[in-house]
Design a protein around this nucleic acid. Structure first.
Lengths: 154, 154
DNA sequence: TATTGTTATACTCTATAACTATA
DNA sequence: TATAGTTATAGAGTATAACAATA
């Protein structure tokens, strides 16, 4: 958390500037609030947005390798090592050898990992709904669709 | 830049996971691409997203104090000091005493700062349009409106 | 007593290169 | 020769506390 909610009114007049209408700027600010809300919701599970993402992909059962996690999450392979180390230490995921490639390690969730994820998903879902409170369900879907076209250009 | 564009196909199958439909996750990924594109466009001007934002608000003529910049940009006051130091060192902005409050310093753009900003704005505008190439003008406005309601909840 | 700008410091995050074991 | 995972390290980004000048 950066600035307190103290005298927020003091900087409100800056919203009229061209920055305040810049889609990139709005995207950055919306994302900052989104991450803050997600991390707050995940704190009680000892997770953050990053580790939650890795756990989510492990739970999904797609048996990703660390390399795939690295590419999909746009993280350096060395960062994935640290994230998996932590989750494995807490027995939420396990590294399994890939029978097709003895170099690769497949990340799978443990039963405890699946249970923790289920509860964490409820918490982040609630936080997300609170953040999107001003949007209708139709708008949420529209938003997701547009963001997807930006995030995954054909 | 994190993962190379080498074997992106390798992680595409992970998109089918629940994470791939998570609005917060899409928001984070779209923002990461947006910042990367903006920073690439700003590099030739020796600017980054942060310093560009400060320069933009200085150019707007609203005469923000550092405290206001800190609140509006959600940055710690000490970070604003560093950003303004750098911009002032390059003579793009100047600190002026606030006649109403001798503690405060008002940030104003120099003529050179305005000129640099004008060129930088063209570059970021082009990068943004490229990033939103799949969106119509109507959709862009819709997106901005929805992001604004998330970023600035009433 | 509270606030603005500042400095110092530590902590997290991110990027890079080198190493190993496999392919 | 190239790739998956790992380690080490340095740089950028972020958070916290303390301070001087002013309100």
């Amino acid at each position: 958390m950066t600035a307190s909610a103290k005298s927020v009114a003091g900087s409100d007049r800056l919203r009229a500037s061209s920055l305040g209408d810049d889609v990139s700027f709005l995207l950055a600010r919306a994302n900052a609030l989104s991450i803050a809300a997600a991390n707050a919701a995940l704190a009680e599970f000892g997770l953050k947005a990053r580790s939650y993402s890795v756990l989510s992909l492990a739970v999904a059962g797609t048996r990703p390798s660390q390399r795939e996690l690295s590419e999909f999450l746009r993280l350096d392979p060395s960062q994935v090592v640290a994230l998996v180390d932590e989750l494995e230490r807490r027995a939420l995921v396990a590294r399994e050898p890939d029978p097709c490639d003895r170099r690769a390690k497949v990340i799978v969730a443990t039963p405890e990992g699946r249970e923790t994820f289920a509860r964490a998903q409820l918490a982040t879902g609630a936080a997300e709904r609170a953040l999107h409170a001003d949007l209708s369900e139709d708008e949420r879907e529209q938003l997701a669709d547009m963001l997807r076209r930006i995030a995954y250009p054909e």
